[in-house]
């Protein structure tokens, strides 16, 4: 009896479901027709973006469930790549540790430094401002120039840092900055921070130019007492879009550190002391040609980044309150 009732209920639901779906779809259709113009604006970007950015990601995620050595067509192997990564690849676990260390230290420092540099610079007269913006952004603009750090941190006594430290008597023997596992991380972090005043910084500089000046005037009247109160209650709330942009750019950069390491500390690094997730991925993808495995690594990294993005967005919601 009861079962019958439930089943008729189910049937009723199903019977209602189809027309509702149809109605919703037609509503959506008319809604979309009404917004034809919006889609027209979006179309050029949307089409190219889908073809060259989204589709490759989808294909990569598909590869992550296959064995694919680029030469033969991919073979479906289910979750095997993921299982191997977490159960039998010690180096992967090591690389996760290194990546988190890089991300948690260089990420926040670079984010706050970018913002405060932009904010401090904004206080200065116009000419000086322009010069300082150029100086701070120049390292990001300079492409491969960061390689000069290999001379500055050169491992013999002729390196600048070693020479200086030995002369003032702090150390008696030269330190192998980029080869000694004890020093490799801090040394690389300095170089990474040097190159990291980038997209976020420029967005902050531009964002500070588009603030509504009348709010500041109102703030003076309302009794904002010093520059820090002004920053928290007036500047930051207006800058939320830029703050979010900077945060996401910082996440994508600091979790994807690899390219800076190779010319300085080699590949792989001594004892894998600075082996990041991306290093691991490049190792499998472009050296061993195990694209399936490399794609699985990329997918995991992707999930980690999306997760941190959610957390950061929550934190940014608290700004100005």
């Amino acid at each position: 009896m009861q079962i019958e009732q439930i089943s008729t209920k189910e049937e009723k639901k199903q019977a209602q479901f189809l027309p509702i779906l149809k109605r919703k779809l037609s509503l959506l259709g008319s809604e979309m027709k009404k917004n034809k113009l919006s889609y027209l604006f979006l179309a050029p970007f949307g089409i190219i973006f889908f073809t060259f950015y989204l589709l490759p990601v989808i294909i990569s995620v598909f590869f992550s469930f296959t064995y694919y050595n680029v030469l033969e067509s991919p073979q479906f192997i289910g979750w095997q790549n993921y299982l191997n990564l977490f159960l039998s690849d010690d180096l992967f676990l090591q690389s996760i540790k290194v990546t988190f260390l890089f991300a948690f230290i260089t990420g926040p420092i670079s984010y706050f430094a970018s913002f405060f540099f932009a904010w401090f610079i904004n206080e200065l007269p116009r000419r000086i401002r322009a010069v300082l913006v150029v100086i701070f952004y120049a390292p990001s603009l300079s492409g491969q120039v960061f390689v000069v750090w290999s001379i500055i941190f050169s491992g013999d006594q002729y390196g600048y840092i070693n020479g200086f430290l030995m002369e003032i008597g702090i150390i008696s023997e030269p330190i192998q900055w980029f080869n000694n596992p004890e020093f490799i991380m801090p040394t690389l972090m300095i170089v990474i921070l040097w190159t990291s005043i980038g997209a976020g910084f420029l967005a902050f500089v531009a964002g500070l130019q588009t603030l509504d000046q009348s709010l500041f005037e109102a703030g003076y009247v309302e009794g904002i007492k010093n520059r820090w109160q002004e920053l928290w209650f007036i500047t930051l709330p207006q800058m939320k879009p830029q703050l979010l942009f900077g945060a996401i750019m910082t996440i994508t950069q600091s979790f994807a550190i690899h390219d800076v390491i190779v010319p300085l500390a080699g590949f792989p690094t001594t004892d894998y002391a600075a082996h990041t997730v991306v290093s691991h991925l490049v190792d499998y993808g472009t050296i061993r040609f195990e694209m399936g495995y490399a794609s699985a690594i990329a997918t995991i990294l992707f999930i980690v980044m999306v997760g941190s993005n959610v957390i950061i967005q929550k934190l940014l919601g608290k700004v100005g309150t």
């Binding site: 990569s60 994508t252 994807a256 991306v278 991925l281 990294l301 992707f302």
Partner: peptide, 9 residues
């Protein structure tokens, strides 16, 4: 899309 490694795509 900004977060997926270009090395793989």
């Amino acid at each position: 899309a900004l977060m997926f490694s270009p090395h793989v795509t």
